[in-house]
Design a protein around this nucleic acid. Sequence first.
DNA 1: CGATAGTAAATCCTATAGGAAACAGGATTC
DNA 2: GAATCCTGTTTCCTATAGGATTTACTATCG
Lengths: 236, 236
Amino acid sequence: MQLASTGSGSEGRPAGRPVSRQVLADHVYEELLESLMDGRLEPGAAVSIDGTARELDVSPTPVREALARLEHTGMVRRVALKGYRVAPVFTQEDFAELMEARLAIEPVNARLACSRLTPSHLKELAQAVADLKDAPRGPSFAEFRGYLEADERFHRLIAEQTGNQFMVAAYAALGGQIQRFRLFGGVGITDADHAIAEHQAVLDALTSGDAQRAEAAMADHVRKVRGRAIADAPAD
Amino acid sequence: MQLASTGSGSEGRPAGRPVSRQVLADHVYEELLESLMDGRLEPGAAVSIDGTARELDVSPTPVREALARLEHTGMVRRVALKGYRVAPVFTQEDFAELMEARLAIEPVNARLACSRLTPSHLKELAQAVADLKDAPRGPSFAEFRGYLEADERFHRLIAEQTGNQFMVAAYAALGGQIQRFRLFGGVGITDADHAIAEHQAVLDALTSGDAQRAEAAMADHVRKVRGRAIADAPAD
DNA sequence: CGATAGTAAATCCTATAGGAAACAGGATTC
DNA sequence: GAATCCTGTTTCCTATAGGATTTACTATCG
């Protein structure tokens, strides 16, 4: 790394980025994922490979690779020779299926995590609940973004604390869809008080170390989320 | 499939082939997936982009796209600037986690599928069990390949018959790993008689329409598979 | 006025080229 | 004899070019 006396070739490295060499496809992936999560890319919108490449000032090759990865998450769909589109809006049936899947996975996660919890894990969970309480809940997206982030973080932490890589993967596959639904499913943050109380109940159960109770608390939470969403659903 | 007949690639492809136009990346994906499932690509082996491209007589671009998709399934791993490698062998801990995840997902699948079963679905399941019984079980891989395929098909059919796209995705994420473990985990087909009987029990429960019984039968099957695998595990 | 054909633009898909980094092997020096 | 440096090769990563196909717009004809 130290330069030899006879510097061969270009000596001037850009001062801004000395070694932080990163693969462009990763950057593109992160950028697209953020756009999808933030709602800047609305369901049904076309995601042009060339267009995205021009917008991010890269070549189409990294964009193609990033989209290939994103396709496997269900966030975008590929039609063989037509290109990529953002996955369509959730129907009520999709939502019901998603909640069914959450009911199968998340209570198990809570039960498994319960037996492996460490104090630092509990602290992280408590922080997530605290952030949920403190997050602003304004009408614009920028204002309730923190709320959604804390909500997702709480559930993801529990999945990670199972120590089971497959349960983490299973939740991750759902987590993106859950986040997407929160944005476009029509359910706002009218249920914050209830949701916070339920999260607190899950956290209390986990703290108590009673795995059965934690599993039940999580199942109760998911069921109630489903119930509130159905009650608020637009009759389209 | 035409890839095999290209021989010594002399010139570009002949112009008059409008029909059966398909994306090359899909071909590469299928080819690689089959190699991974068949065990031709052993765990830890490097999967060179350029090498695979030469071998399949395509350019590196489709190979890159196929590998990007495969990475998300856990079959291959990517190191930032070093390339792709086949995922390492399962440890006993990995196996325990996989079975824990199966226990969370597959019994639920059986329960959900039970209420939606149609006669044609039942016929497909019965065919899978019949194939399992009839499949040869020789020592070489080519001989018990049919057995593994029927086994995987049975479980996948149940997942699909839930009608829940997310449960299908969750099972698909596990299914590949299960198949990989069957090849490299050390458990042969010494338990065929037990496994067939358990599959039959699950099928009977599904036929009866008793969702609770189907769920229990599937849970019993997964637990017994786990038990037999642990008993047969090499003490490495 | 409406429908159709033709052209132009945009897009996807694949191949090829070139730069950068990592790995392997051999030669040199202590 | 061992460690180090250098060099050649391989591989990954990105950019660019070109063929093929779909889409949109326009002009012409019925």
